[in-house]
């Protein structure tokens, strides 16, 4: 991925930069909002990572100005402000995702991958992975010749996973996007839903489609082409 990190906390930024570089990503760091906006305007980035509270130009304003320039590069806000209205404000300003500090690197990376590849599959109504197909309109799911009967939420879960196939999807991403809850949970609720879905999808088939990535999340499919430094 080609990333631009706009973050005034130098230490935190250096740490992130070194980790993304270790994973083979091309990441540029801007130390304040003004410099960040200038770089972002030159374009060519897959995703922008923007801190909200910064000197000179704060993150919200930066993204607002960028969107006025008709730039549609996906933006992920990084912030210490975690309230619901902060989140809504960030998304209204033109952000595409919102991650509250502190976060796990794996969480950030998964979200960035989702944003970087998002554009491809958003409008599709027929989602497939190998022999699995999901029709958003008729709400039918088949694997091979077998029709799979899913509950409403299981359908949403599978749809989200299919839209992000071969990517790591974290528990928080699922909570946010499938259940619309903006907070983390200490318990294994998501794992239980995943294992029930897995039982329906993979029960009678040799190749499992829905896999768990320990310490990070889940992958529908074979996993990221470029394997990160997963635990």
């Amino acid at each position: 991925m080609k990333l631009l990190l706009i973050e005034d906390d130098i230490d935190a930024a250096e740490l992130l930069v070194s980790r993304f570089r270790a994973d083979g990503d091309d990441i540029t760091h801007a130390e304040d909002g003004a410099a960040g906006l200038q770089l972002a305007r030159q374009g060519g980035f897959d995703v922008l990572i923007v801190d909200r509270m910064m000197p000179k130009l704060d993150g919200l304003e930066l993204v607002r100005q960028l969107r006025q320039d008709d730039s549609d590069t996906p933006v992920l806000f990084l912030t210490a402000l975690g309230s619901v209205s902060d989140r809504v404000g960030g998304l209204q300003a033109g952000g595409d995702d919102y991650l509250v500090k502190p976060f796990a690197y794996a969480e950030l990376r998964a979200r960035l991958e989702a944003l970087a590849r998002r554009n491809a599959s958003n409008a599709d109504t027929q989602l497939t992975l190998e022999d699995l197909t999901l029709d958003v309109v008729s709400r039918r799911v088949r694997r091979g010749d077998v029709e799979i009967d899913l509950k409403a939420r299981e359908f949403l879960l599978l749809e989200y996973l299919l839209r992000h196939k071969n990517q790591i999807v974290t528990r928080a991403m699922l909570l946010e996007n499938v259940w619309q809850y903006g907070f983390d949970t200490q318990t294994n609720v998501i794992d239980v839903h995943i294992s029930r879905l897995r039982a329906k999808l993979d029960k009678d088939f040799e190749t499992p489609l829905l896999n768990t990535v320990r310490g990070e999340g889940f992958v529908l499919g074979t996993g990221p082409e470029k394997s990160g430094a997963s635990a």
């Binding site: 906390d9 230490d11 935190a12 740490l15 992130l16 070194s18 980790r19 509270m53 210490a80 402000l81 975690g82 500090k101 502190p102 976060f103 796990a104 690197y105 794996a106 430094a229 997963s230 635990a231």
Partner: peptide
């Protein structure tokens, strides 16, 4: 409170980040 959130979380975030990076090493 906002500043506290920012100022206290930032070093914790960095600390967490470093430990997270160390853990990546098997």
């Amino acid at each position: 409170t906002d500043n506290l959130a920012h100022d206290l979380r930032s070093p914790l975030t960095r600390l967490r980040g470093r430990l997270d990076a160390m853990r990546a090493d098997t």
